[in-house]
Amino acid sequence: MDFVLVHGTTQSPASWDRVAKLLTTAGHRAIAVDLLTPVDLPVEGYAQHVREQYGGGRPVVVAHSGSGVLLPAIAEALDARAMVWVAAYIPDFAGGRSLRDEARDVLEPDWIGVDPAADPAKASEFLFHDCDPETERQALDSLRSFNPAVLATHPAGPAPEIPSTVIVPTRDRTLRPEWLRRAARERLGVTAIEIDSGHCPHLSRPAELAAILTRRT
């Protein structure tokens, strides 16, 4: 099975290295794509940008954090067999609100306005607080800002028909776990899977996350 791994707004594709290695060892193909481009694109442009980096068919697309805004478009562009939302924002398909409209409901108050790529101490506090020291050092090396306006302002389209799995880190300090559990039920019609981690289980709990991916998709 192919897995297309989509980084979030504060990290590079390297953040997926541990999970990709585990998936490959288990006999799968894992491609960590790069969303960064010289200019900001519309949502459909980022979906095309990902398609240009992937040469297979019908993958499972896994998105982290803010890239949940892009996940439905990417999954449709790749004719994905499934979508996985890892601590990822689930758009308001029925109401059409953007992430900016919902920010105070979705995000932990202390996280709003923080730029972890510019402040390693804040990154450790909010993103990597459950990582061991070696993992934390590697995680800090993966920091990179990717925050085009479209991620905050894009209004949600129709709900995708592609099957979804939602993974909720119970110790997330950025995206509210209780909000994500509710959004999984109300917006995607699924019960979330919980993992005992902070916002980045692909870094702090890669084996557990890889096991969920291979078991549920």
Rank of each mutant, 00 (worst) to 15 (best):
F128L: 14
V106S: 07
S124R: 13
S98V: 12
I112Y: 08
E102A: 13
K122C: 00
H129Y: 05
R100G: 06
E102I: 09
A121Y: 06
A123Y: 06
A121N: 09
L99A: 15
L107P: 07
E125L: 10
A103S: 15
F128G: 06
W111H: 05
F128M: 12
P116W: 02
H129Q: 14
D110L: 08
K122S: 07
D115K: 10
A118Q: 15
D115L: 05
S124I: 12
D119A: 09
S124C: 12
A118N: 14
D119T: 07
L127F: 11
E102F: 07
A118D: 13
H129R: 07
E125W: 06
E125P: 02
A103C: 09
A121C: 05
V114K: 07
A123F: 10
P116V: 04
L99T: 02
H129M: 00
A121D: 15
S98Q: 00
D110C: 03
I112W: 07
F126G: 00
L99Q: 13
D110R: 12
F128T: 09
P120C: 00
S98G: 11
D115W: 03
F128D: 01
R104L: 15
E125H: 12
E108G: 02
H129T: 03
L107W: 13
E108W: 02
A117M: 06
D105P: 00
E108C: 11
A121T: 13
L127Q: 01
S124H: 05
A123E: 05
I112R: 09
D119C: 02
D105H: 10
L99W: 07
S98N: 10
E108I: 01
A123W: 06
D119W: 02
L99R: 08
S98C: 10
S98E: 09
V106R: 09
L99K: 06
D115C: 02
S124D: 14
A103T: 15
V106T: 08
A117R: 02
D105S: 14
H129D: 07
E102D: 15
A123G: 14
A121V: 13
